[in-house]
Computed example of a mutant assay.
Amino acid sequence: MIGVVIPACNEEQSIKSCLLALQHAIDAVADHIQVRVVVVLDSCTDQTLAHVQALNIDYLCCELRCVGQVRDLGVRYLLEQGATWIACTDADSTVSPNWLVSQLNHQPADLICGVVSISDWQDLSQQTQDLYQVHYQDRMGHGHIHGANLSFSREAYLKAGGFLGLSCHEDVDLVQRMLAQDFKVLWSNQVRVTTSSRLDGRVDEGFAHFLKNLDTKQQLLPKASNS
């Protein structure tokens, strides 16, 4: 069984799109493998829960305010249900229709790090977009780590100690511990997720923080002279 974990904190604007896209990915593997999804609602004060309930998706509610603990809560809940492979994404992201198919095609693996694409650049300048494209490597063997597109085996997760109670970079920390223990880590651009370019991220030093830093860095660059 595959388990899918989605942390959410006040994501009423995006959670429906996230879950509908995920359903397409589930439909693509439904003939030969069971998939269970859990949304872990952390300190939500908006209508995120109502949207999750309307789509009849399993959920947990907590007041942790710590993404590492939230992801771990969801992972361990699904492991108790019998999941042998866990796939993580985020509530402001949409997985590709072949997201789960690609993960299965990459087996055997202990952990798969996928790539993310930006859905809408309206919050960022063209110069910042260009700077991001220079930095980002959309290829096999890329080396990027995203909590919004990370999947792993039950055995590797438990042996590595799982997500720790970190408020940011919990994904990087987990991957580094798996690498240190010589687990088979695959860096794939075939496992794809589209995410938002919002700058008001739910995590202080997450992907939104990275984009904001890029934008600030671009604004501080000297302007080209026309003379």
Rank of each mutant, 00 (worst) to 15 (best):
C66G: 04
Q69C: 09
V70Y: 06
V70Q: 09
R71D: 00
D72N: 15
D72P: 01
L73W: 05
L73M: 15
R76M: 08
L78E: 03
L78S: 02
L79Q: 07
E80N: 10
A87M: 09
A87W: 08
D90F: 01
D92R: 11
D92G: 13
T94F: 04
S96P: 03
L100R: 08
L100I: 13
S102V: 02
L104N: 05
Q107A: 14
P108N: 11
I112W: 04
C113F: 07
G114I: 00
G114A: 04
S117E: 10
D120G: 10
D120C: 12
D130L: 12
L131D: 10
Q137H: 13
D138Y: 15
D138P: 00
R139G: 07
R139M: 12
R139S: 13
M140F: 10
M140R: 12
M140S: 13
H142D: 05
I145E: 00
G147L: 00
G147V: 03
S151Y: 02
R154Q: 03
A156Y: 01
Y157T: 02
A160M: 08
G162Q: 06
F163N: 04
L164M: 09
G165Y: 04
D171G: 03
D173T: 02
D173H: 14
L179E: 13
A180H: 06
Q181E: 09
F183T: 04
K184T: 12
K184Y: 05
K184M: 09
W187Q: 12
W187A: 03
S188A: 11
V193H: 11
